[in-house]
Design a protein around this nucleic acid. Sequence first.
DNA 1: CAAATTTGTAACTAATTAGTTAGTTAATGG
DNA 2: CCATTAACTAACTAATTAGTTACAAATTTG
Lengths: 214, 214
Amino acid sequence: MPPAAKPASTAVTRNPERTRARVLEAARNAFASHGLAGARVDAIAEASGANKRMIYYYFADKEGLFLATLEQIYAELCAASGTLDLEAPPEEALARYIDFVWGYYLEHPEAVTILNSENLHGGRHLKRSDKVRDLERPFVDKLTLLLKRGAEDGVFRAGLDPVTIHITVTAMTYFFLGNNTTLSIFFGQNLASARARRNWRRHIHASLKAIVSA
Amino acid sequence: MPPAAKPASTAVTRNPERTRARVLEAARNAFASHGLAGARVDAIAEASGANKRMIYYYFADKEGLFLATLEQIYAELCAASGTLDLEAPPEEALARYIDFVWGYYLEHPEAVTILNSENLHGGRHLKRSDKVRDLERPFVDKLTLLLKRGAEDGVFRAGLDPVTIHITVTAMTYFFLGNNTTLSIFFGQNLASARARRNWRRHIHASLKAIVSA
DNA sequence: CAAATTTGTAACTAATTAGTTAGTTAATGG
DNA sequence: CCATTAACTAACTAATTAGTTACAAATTTG
């Protein structure tokens, strides 16, 4: 049922890859704005310019489309981390790492809401994805090396767990950005302002420095 | 339209307050499990034992019911923080504060998913809630005093912002618990285990100690 | 080039949904 | 004790929804 990858064609009237890509883009927007249950397949079809039938042809059902969206997000995140350059003194490299995570979620707010949706549904789509299981996670290896290097240089504490550090950086980024609205209302201040964001990013840097310091 | 609070009655056949409470409880479960769009008013009516008409009678519409659920969650969080005792040496008191936040979200996973839903929808329900605006937030005052006390004692850094510290503790708690499923899948380890939770809670304590230390 | 296959369309359907109508029964207050 | 109001019910509706059917055109392949 799922169409195999095909060599580029000069045809304009038919273009399955472009159709797929456009559907995925529209799906991403729709799921990000309304969640899995709130997103409308008809709306995705219209926004992508594809016929609704094609969505079912390519992705089987709404949940299949949601899974494909999730897989694309994870693939993009991992691919982006491939270009991450941590060849610098440990403290400088850690700062770059933080800026990468912060920058990624700042530029991809849809990733936050879609991952939240997947957690709402107990990860039932991701669980059956071998695409995500087989993904390269360059940032984990890079962070592992960085922490080791920092410990050897005596600037980082020894025995730091890379996954723990990654989750810490992501938690501080993701929670601040993803829950910005309710936090702003609850604390009566605009945490979406450039100033508030700048302060928070600075706070992440200072916090992680304190956490990893020897 | 919204019914006023009434003195307790001995009647059993009619009990608007109990009906309201049961609807709210069912709504909380439904919204927590399926989100705003995914929750079904019919299912909430059936689960609460109330007639669907009564839900519209008390809460106007589905969004009104969602707002009432949100308000209840915030009210409970603030009420719970009222009993929080921080009368202890600053480092011990900060540990208690962390355990309060951690314990609260651990015991109320539905608060996490419902707040995520509200953020998905841009906070449009909470924005029009004066109930939440007028809420007492005892934990902010308590934390403010604690940070001041710690600074005076020379154990905490001076000038720490209580809201920043609160968001930091909440970020590390909320993100770990709320995104536990996708994190577990992505990093190939069971972060829901008692051991993983214990380690993470310990990590929050160590991290905050490092962050606030003079 | 012809048969098989892939890509695409338009119109449809069966089920579900939020919200309503029209009325009944219990409590309350004068 | 009766009239008004509050609490409640069952059955309904109009709109929407995920998913399908039946068909057509383009492309590939033997």
